[in-house]
Design a binder for these strands. Structure first.
Lengths: 111, 111
DNA sequence: ATTATATATAGATAATAATCTATGTAAGGG
DNA sequence: CCCTTACATAGATTATTATCTATATATAAT
C-alpha cells in the first residue's frame, strides 16, 4: 500500500471531527491559549487536551508554552499539503498519471 | 455547532481511510467497475461494497449500473468543495473573518 | 429453468476513538 | 511552604467502523 495513502488518511482522520474543525477555525484568527478555546465548547478540559494533542501530532497545529499558558497556532503549511494531496489525487490528465499506474494501464477502458 | 463543521467532518471521515484514498486514486484514471477495483486490494468483495457505499453516500463518487456491472466514477465537484472548505477554514485575513466571529472578537489578542 | 457472475445486505467481531471522572504536574502568588 | 491555576495523563465506557462469513438479489448465458 502506497504510504502516502496512510499518511494522508491519518491527516483526514484528524480533520474528521467537527470539534477539531471548529478549533482550527478559531485558531485561524490567531494564536490562542487552551482556556480561551475551551470556553467555546461544552466538553470538559481533558477532552480539549485530547483534541489538541491529536491536532499537534498531526502537524496541523503548533504549540508554545509561556508560564501557565499553552498557546496554540495553526501550521498552514500542513493544511496546504492536504489540499495539494487532494488536488493530485483527483487530477485526471490525458496520460492518466494516477499513483496506481499499474491499475490504470492494465485495464481495458472500453466495455 | 456550526453545521458546516459536521458536514465536512463527515466528508473528512470518508477520506480518513487509506483504502478509500486508493479507490479514489484509481477512479481518477476514469470510470471503473467494482470487480476491477477489487483486484487491487486484499480484502473481500463485501468490504469493497462497504467502502463504495461510503464513498457514494459522501457524494465523492457516483455510480451507474449496466447489466451485471456497477460502474463508479469520481465527482470532482465534491472534492473541490472539500478543498474550498479547507481554504476558507484556515484563511487568516486582516479582518479575521473566521466563522466563529464572536470567539475572535471577544478575546484580547495580547497577553 | 438452471447456473454462473457481479454486487449488495445482514450480522458478528475486533479495533479505534470520543468522552468522562479522577488524578498528576508544573508554574506562579502569597 | 501551601494554595491556586492551567493543562496533561490514566483508565473506563460507549459509539463507531473496518472487516469477515454467510446469504440475498439481479442479470446474463446456456
Amino acid at each position: 500500500m502506497n504510504n502516502r495513502y496512510q499518511t494522508f488518511a491519518k491527516l483526514f482522520k484528524t480533520l474528521a471531527d467537527p470539534n477539531r474543525l471548529k478549533i482550527i477555525d478559531i485558531l485561524s484568527c490567531g494564536e490562542k491559549c487552551a482556556c480561551d478555546i475551551l470556553e467555546e465548547f461544552q466538553f470538559t478540559q481533558p477532552t480539549l487536551s485530547h483534541h489538541m494533542k491529536v491536532l499537534i501530532d498531526s502537524g496541523l497545529v503548533n504549540s508554545r508554552k509561556q508560564g501557565l499558558w499553552h498557546f496554540y497556532r495553526l501550521n498552514p503549511e500542513r493544511s496546504h499539503q492536504v489540499k495539494q494531496f487532494l488536488t493530485e489525487l483527483i487530477s485526471e490528465t490525458d496520460a492518466c498519471i494516477c499513483h496506481e499506474q499499474a491499475v490504470c494501464s492494465s485495464l481495458e477502458q472500453v466495455r
